[in-house]
Design a protein around this nucleic acid. Structure first.
Length: 220
DNA sequence: GACCAGGCACATC
DNA sequence: GATGTGCATGGT
């Protein structure tokens, strides 16, 4: 008995429907959210973004002009707020200096080149970079997060020790290079993670156990 | 009150 | 190269 990742995608999509990600109104807002959500519940991020929106600061030049302390106070609900103020400032400085704040110009750059540029910004790691590229830029790169890792490992599809790029390759080599597919698949995995694959309780009522043929045991 | 959340950089061995 | 730690608010 075997099944492919694409089967898993189809089952999840049928069970949960389209997720409509990313929950942000503009590429810039998605970029801001991608930094603020690092190791943090999205609910907290929403409040921080609302503060920025209320102050009409959702603009690369406006954010870049803000000093770190002011920014920190505005994004406080997102947690790690002093750290994230620096990281967001680094990202905005990069966008302004390299592209004069023109996100269309930025996302017109070759995917691998742009990915390297983003990773060179202090505070932007693999997941944040990929989230920005896929969800803000519409570029075909798979996003791996803690749920993706946890769900795949618990079902025995990858080692628990697998690193970011191992997991990313696992998806990208099994799936067509399709932005809509990458977008929806990752969003569905997070959806499952939120409801059934938290750190504790370990795997209560995992829907994949119902969906998968024999072998789809969630056991960690 | 403890534990967790859509990471990342940095220190130390 | 592997392993450990700081960062911080808000919900369960």
């Amino acid at each position: 008995m075997s099944y492919s990742l694409l089967n898993v995608y189809d089952w999840l999509l049928e069970a949960y429907g389209r997720q409509g990600w990313w929950p942000g109104d503009s590429p810039l807002e998605i970029m801001v959210g991608a930094v603020l959500v690092q190791n943090t519940a999205w609910k907290n991020v929403e409040k921080a973004i609302a503060h920025l929106a209320d102050a009409a600061l959702l603009d690369p030049h406006a954010l870049n002009a803000l000093d770190a302390e002011e920014l920190a106070e505005l994004i406080r609900p997102a947690g790690y707020y002093r750290l994230k103020a620096k990281r967001l400032g680094n990202l905005m400085r990069y966008v302004v200096e390299a592209y004069d704040g023109d996100l269309d110009a930025m996302f017109a750059v070759d995917l691998e080149t742009l990915r390297e540029e983003l990773l060179a910004v202090n505070g932007i790691g693999p997941e944040t970079a990929d989230s920005i590229l896929l969800y803000a830029g519409g570029l075909p790169t798979f996003v791996v997060d803690t749920y993706t890792h946890r769900i795949l490992a618990r079902h025995g599809w990858i080692d628990f020790e697998a690193g970011y790029y191992e997991i990313k390759d696992h998806f990208e080599s099994a799936l067509a290079e399709d932005v809509a597919l990458y977008n929806e698949f990752h969003a569905l995995l997070v959806r499952v993670g939120h409801h059934h694959c938290r750190k504790t309780p370990k795997c209560e009522g995992c829907p994949l156990e119902e969906m998968l043929p024999e072998g789809g045991r969630c056991d960690a």
